[in-house]
Simulated scan of single mutants.
Amino acid sequence: MDMRELRENARKQMVGKCRVCPVCNGRACAGEVPGMGGTGTGEAFTENVRALASLKLNLRVIHDSLQPDTTIEMFGQQLKTPIMGAPITGAVINAGEALTEFNMVSALVEGSHLAGSIGWIGDPANPSMYEDGLASIRKAGQGIAIIKPRVSNKEIIELFKLAEKAGAIAVGTDLDGAGLITMALKGQPVGPKTTEQLIELIQSTALPFIIKGIMTVDEAVKCVEVGANAIVISNHGGRVLDHTPGVADVLTEISRAVKGKITILADGGVRSGADVLKLLALGADGVLVGRPLIMGAYGGNTEGVKMIIDKYTSELKAAMILTGCKSVKEIPPEVLWRK
């Protein structure tokens, strides 16, 4: 199977939910939530893609970077690539009935694992769907569990314990899901967390703790202060708050404030290995990919997810050669062209 076949298969499987556009930029699906689009005008989704596309790379060819090193260590695990599978839930609702929740999350976690990376699972309102994610972690032997910020910390901690037993290597909460109405409608209201509540969650587990949904410097600093191990710069794929800036627009300032004090991950708009290089140059230590891996799962299941991550990793290596970068752990900001 090649990329053309993968995309054609996905288009057939996701008919009525996703158009599998030549460039996944959120324009055709604006406002389609549930669905694959961004909320409201869809601008927050499109800004993620635009912010990355607006960045240009400096071509450099006088150097000795012949075999770029794309490996990173993440939460005690050695990964072949800095590209990880983002926590995704709601397959049937958002992407179509061709895959069950278990089919999709298994493809995401196992495909990421086979690509030498790690897959993250999310936490929808339906408990059986969370169990599907835990089962995929058990099968792959590793994974990361991100829990919705339920109003009750007790409920979150109980879900952490299940992830620990399943073999998760890290846990966390996606605070960018704090306004999800669907959770409240199903009797599991969510909301923001105070620093005291975050400290309670962090102290409830011995695993590395991740806070997802950080888009400002002040909140990144707070994450360092409460003792989190990592943050994910993310606007939830543009699906929760309209008119936010793109992830690449805020990453540099956040990195300047907390780089070296906490692991910085970026999630939003990655559509190629060159995009990955851009985010690393802006200060990220690793990146998450969402919608393209959904397309991969629907187009080719586990193999399709692996194919996307492998493709992006290969493109990343090529971009590193042509910008003079030897290791993803040392990507200088000078990789980016500035006027």
Rank of each mutant, 00 (worst) to 15 (best):
D2K: 10
K12R: 15
K17S: 10
C18T: 09
R19T: 13
V23W: 03
G26S: 00
A28Q: 10
A28W: 05
V33G: 00
V33R: 09
M36K: 13
T41N: 06
T46E: 12
T46I: 04
E47C: 07
R50Y: 00
L52P: 02
L55N: 03
N58V: 15
D64I: 12
S65V: 14
L66K: 12
P68A: 09
I72Q: 01
I72R: 00
E73R: 09
M74N: 00
Q78H: 13
Q78G: 08
L79H: 03
P82Q: 04
P82W: 00
I83Q: 00
G85A: 14
L99G: 05
F102V: 10
F102K: 14
N103Q: 15
N103I: 00
V105D: 08
S106D: 07
V109A: 09
H113N: 13
I118M: 00
G122M: 11
G122A: 10
P127D: 11
D132R: 08
S136R: 02
I137D: 03
Q142C: 12
I146T: 06
P149F: 07
N153A: 11
N153H: 10
K154E: 15
E155F: 14
I157P: 10
K161D: 08
E164M: 02
K165F: 04
K165E: 14
G167H: 06
A170T: 01
T173N: 13
D174K: 06
Q188W: 08
K193P: 11
Q197H: 09
L198W: 12
E200Y: 11
I202P: 00
Q203K: 15
S204F: 09
T205C: 03
I210T: 06
I214T: 08
M215R: 08
T216Q: 13
D218G: 07
V221S: 05
G227K: 02
I231M: 04
N235P: 02
L241E: 09
V247F: 01
V247W: 03
L251M: 06
T252E: 15
E253Q: 12
I254F: 08
I262G: 01
T263G: 00
D275P: 03
A281Q: 03
A284P: 05
V289F: 04
Y298E: 02
N301G: 13
Y312A: 02
L316T: 09
A319L: 10
K326H: 14
K329F: 02
K329A: 13
I331V: 15
P332I: 10
P332V: 07
P333H: 12
L336H: 08
